[in-house]
Structure formats: C-alpha cells, structure tokens
C-alpha cells in the first residue's frame, strides 16, 4: 500500500485488535446472536488486513461473500434453530475448557516460535497492487483453470445438496394425505419418524415458530 510506515503499523494494530477481540467474542459469549454479529466484525477486520496487503480484489470478495452471504446465512440459521432453552449443564465442564485452552495456547506458542525463527526469503519484485485483478484473471484462465472449473462444479453440488437437506418434511397426518394433490407438483417423500427422547413428532417450520410464539 502507498501509506506511510507509521500509518501501516497503526492500522495493522487496530485491525488486529478488532479481529482478536471479535474472535474471542465469537467463541466465548453465551448469546449466539452476539457471536454471529461479532463474526461479521472478524470478517470486516480481515478485509481491512487484506487491503493492507495490497489485495483490493480479495478484500472486496471477502466483504461481499463472507459478510454479505455467509454471515447472513448463519444469522438465518440461528433464527431457524433458536430454541431459547439453556443446555443441560455437564458436570466438570471446566476440565474440557481448561484442557482445550492449554492445548490451543501451546499450539499458538509453537506456531509463533516457528514464524519468528524461520528466515523467510522476501521477494524483491514490484507488488501487483492495482493490477491484482488482472493478474488473478490471467491465473484463472491459464494456471488455475482446472481448479476454477472444479470450484464451479463444487458450488453447484453444494447448492443442490443444501436444498435437498433443508427441504421441508411432510407431516405424517391422515388429513394431509387425503388432500388432493394438484397436478404438476412434486410430492415430497414422507420420512419415517426417528425416535427422540421425548417422542416429539415431526413438525414443519411454521408449526415450530407458532409454538414458540404461543
């Protein structure tokens, strides 16, 4: 970036504080909606860091895809599975958190020591700042053509898979089965009931939402 050295360091410090603070909020806060919004904060801080790394296209893609699509998708999923019921506390849960924190800080120490002590060979070429999207476009159509095509197939698979998995189930009631099926509709396959602890029957989204409102 064509910024002064001091401005770069201060921006890096602010963005990294935002990112770490928001990430700690994502994993530590009990309220999941706060965590989801703080995750959006992490994504935006990382987009800012990409701008500091001379990557304008990827920073834009990060904001559009992560904040605009993934974060909104997570919020919708939270809305649909928001049960408003506290989880049953496990006995001695602090052992799991303590051990995980220990392992994670050990891993962080190992990675930091490796980063600080490796002699990285810095490149001396001119950074492709403003023409980064041209270079990325050239890569997509020459070196990285096969991954590009495979990524498009993968996105198609994920789209179809997510639709099939999240499709609404039919209620296994007699009244629904007797309803006249209009022509040109796909009857959904009725699924068998899976035995749950309380024996709750299958419901549609509208029923669950109306039960929560009552």
């Amino acid at each position: 970036m064509n910024l002064a050295e001091g401005v770069q360091i201060v921006s890096f410090g602010l963005l990294s504080l935002m990112a770490i603070g928001a990430a700690l909020g994502v994993v530590l806060l009990p309220n999941i909606v706060y965590s989801a919004f703080l995750l959006g904060g992490v994504f935006i801080s990382i987009a800012g860091l990409y701008l500091l790394l001379n990557a304008d296209f990827v920073a834009t893609a990060q904001v559009l895809i992560y904040v605009g699509a993934v974060n909104v998708l997570i919020l919708f999923a939270i809305m649909l599975v928001n049960k408003r019921q506290d989880f049953v506390a496990i006995p001695r849960a602090w052992i799991r958190r303590g051990a995980t924190a220990l392992v994670c800080s050990g891993l962080f120490a190992l990675l930091s020591i490796m980063v600080v002590s490796t002699p990285w060979s810095f490149s001396t070429g001119i950074a492709a700042g403003n023409s980064s999207i041209v270079t990325i476009g050239k890569h997509f159509f020459t070196d990285f053509l096969l991954p590009f095509e495979l990524a498009s197939v993968l996105l198609l698979m994920a789209l179809i898979g997510a639709i099939i998995l999240a499709r609404r189930e039919l209620l296994p009631d007699d009244s629904v089965a007797e309803l006249q099926q209009p022509a040109l509709t796909l009857p959904e396959r009725p699924r068998e009931l899976i035995a749950v602890g309380a024996g709750a029957p299958e419901r549609t989204i509208a029923q669950s939402l109306s039960d929560q409102n009552n």
Binding site: S123, A127, T135, F140
Partner: peptide, 23 residues
C-alpha cells in the same frame, strides 16, 4: 504479498478457499 508479490498466486488460492468455505 511478501514472498510472491509479482504473480500473486496466494491471492488466487485465497479466492478458491473463500468460495469453498461459502459452499
């Protein structure tokens, strides 16, 4: 940015990771 500033192959890889993470 620091090791491959001319052919920014890391940025291409990152774009793929973003797409796969969204899927």
């Amino acid at each position: 940015n620091y090791l491959d500033a001319q052919d920014i192959k890391g940025q291409v890889f990152t774009t793929f990771v973003i797409a796969i993470a969204a899927a």
